[in-house]
């Protein structure tokens, strides 16, 4: 390869490599379009945000939420029944009412829990439809 050609290739790489990298990262950050993600956008993101960061001291963030760690067995009921009163997390204490979502089916809940756990949880809770149905029986 002649030196001229090398410079040309190097130049092209520089010229187009940066936009290519930008596009690559954009594609990786694109929100996924699975059923759990869709349910999250429909029912959760208004308060907890697209990024799950919550809203200041009003709505809690989802990463490190106790309902994704030590209270994960209560997550299905939390979504189905909602919550009133105060909620204490590592980030602070919250007192807004979380609405109930009685229309979510066990299949929806299973997809949603899987999505929440994958995106913000630390453990891989098994959230099969059968598991969800069993947990729903124990809801208040």
């Amino acid at each position: 390869m002649s030196p001229d050609r090398k410079y040309l290739l190097g130049g092209l790489l520089l010229l187009f490599g940066i936009p290519l990298l930008v596009i690559f990262f954009q594609m990786h950050n694109r929100p996924d379009t699975g059923p759990g993600s869709k349910l999250y956008r429909q029912h959760c993101s208004a308060c907890h945000g697209q990024d799950g960061k919550g809203l200041r001291a009003l709505y809690p963030p989802l990463s490190d939420s106790p309902y994704l760690i030590e209270k994960q067995a209560l997550l299905v009921c939390l979504i189905r029944v909602g919550i009133r009163g105060s909620l204490v997390t590592a980030d602070g204490s919250y007192n807004q009412r979380m609405p109930a979502f009685p229309d979510l089916t066990p299949g929806d809940l299973s997809q949603l829990v899987l999505y929440l756990q994958t995106r913000w949880g630390k453990t891989n809770q098994i959230s099969s439809v059968k598991n969800v149905e069993q947990q729903l029986l124990l809801c208040p």
Binding site: L12, F16, P19, L20, V22, I23
Partner: peptide
């Protein structure tokens, strides 16, 4: 050729 591979990024860069 690199020109072919980078056509979409080029148009993106121009639109940016």
């Amino acid at each position: 050729s690199p020109e072919d591979m980078v056509r979409p990024p080029l148009s993106t860069a121009i639109s940016v």
